[in-house]
């Protein structure tokens, strides 16, 4: 069974005038069918206003469908009797870590979710420990979140979600405000959670490089899924991606340019190692920052 499934999902935002009268509507999601299997790492790409965030907010019942259905781990998100199951199973991480951290001390912040769920105190502390260790922030547990870097704060936000023991984490541009090492830390943490803890990850991002690790990439446009496939399938379509206001990873673009200049290189190169192999070279492990 899919962990996340949307069936012909449609969402209209109602536009109102100053008196609150309905003056029109904007279709933000227009017939999206999404199937995510448990344990997958999914990337969702799309230009600003393509409907990515609206889609994300449906997955843990922050928004409800205008038409169609969203099924999370077997629960229909409009079924109020399972609202808290849905919110616990599908955690959300947003763009700005400063808006998500409420505790004065890192470990208190991470314990907030389980405490709210009524988890016994002893277990809260166990969950805080495992969650902070999972994102590599255990040594910072006694610190004030204000003293952390952007990437560290975002990892604390993720730990706060993990402490709820979700099956799925939806990350809505978690790296948009971070510096290069912060971005790297957050993506590494997301991949580790996926590979080690088998948590399903749905990553919404504007950084094409972050999508190369995904099992599957969905590209949204005008509220619809415009492209889907493996990163290689999607990023092979350089011109199509540009039409969609997007891009491809820089190494993919470089390989594309070399191919246009006549070198026998396939489309959809995703790493410098693949490029070296395609050029007939013997790649070496250089420990690049983007491994």
């Amino acid at each position: 069974m899919e962990i996340v499934k949307t069936i012909k999902l449609i969402h209209d935002y109602i536009v109102r005038d100053e008196e609150g009268n309905e003056t029109g509507k904007v279709r933000a999601i227009d017939g999206v069918d999404l199937d995510v299997a448990p344990g997958q790492f999914i990337a969702v790409l799309g230009h600003n206003g393509s409907g990515k965030s609206t889609l994300a907010k449906h997955l843990n019942a922050l928004l409800y469908p205008t038409e169609g259905q969203v099924i999370l781990d077997g629960f229909d998100t409009t079924d109020e009797s399972h609202l808290w199951d849905i919110r616990q199973e599908a955690g959300m991480v947003f763009q700005n870590p400063d808006n998500q951290i409420i505790g004065q001390v890192v470990e208190e912040d991470v314990g907030f979710g389980p405490e709210n769920m009524g988890v016994p105190t002893k277990e809260i502390w166990e969950r805080v420990e495992e969650s902070l260790k999972a994102v590599g922030m255990w040594e910072f547990r006694k610190k004030s979140p204000n003293r952390l870097s952007g990437g560290q704060k975002q990892r604390v936000s993720i730990a706060g979600v993990i402490a709820m023991h979700p099956k799925c984490i939806i990350m809505d541009e978690p790296t948009a405000m971070l510096d290069p090492s912060g971005r790297h830390e957050v993506i590494r943490a997301a991949r580790a959670l996926n590979q080690v803890e088998h948590i399903t990850i749905i990553l919404i991002t504007h950084y094409m490089e972050e999508a190369i690790y995904a099992d599957k990439v969905f590209v949204m446009d005008e509220g619809k899924i415009a492209l889907q496939g493996t990163p290689r399938e999607v990023f092979s379509q350089v011109d199509r991606m540009k039409e969609l206001h997007l891009d491809v990873p820089q190494v993919t673009l470089l390989a594309h340019e070399l191919r246009k200049a006549g070198l026998p290189i396939p489309e959809g190169i995703l790493t410098s190692r693949e490029l070296a192999l395609a050029l007939g070279l013997q790649p070496k492990e250089t420990g690049s920052a983007w491994d």
Binding site: S149, G151, D179, P180, S181, G182, H184, E209, P249, Q250, V251, L253, L254, E257, S272, R273, L275, A276, L279, L281, Q282, P283, K284, T286, S288, A289, W290
Partner: peptide
């Protein structure tokens, strides 16, 4: 906490693989 542009890393990897390229390229 910073980095070089991705192209720099890609060119370093290609140089390490034996292609005699400059590694200070900044753009595609």
């Amino acid at each position: 906490g910073l980095a070089a542009p991705q192209m720099t890393y890609i060119m370093r990897d290609l140089a390490a693989a034996g292609l005699p390229v400059r590694t200070d390229c900044l753009t595609v």
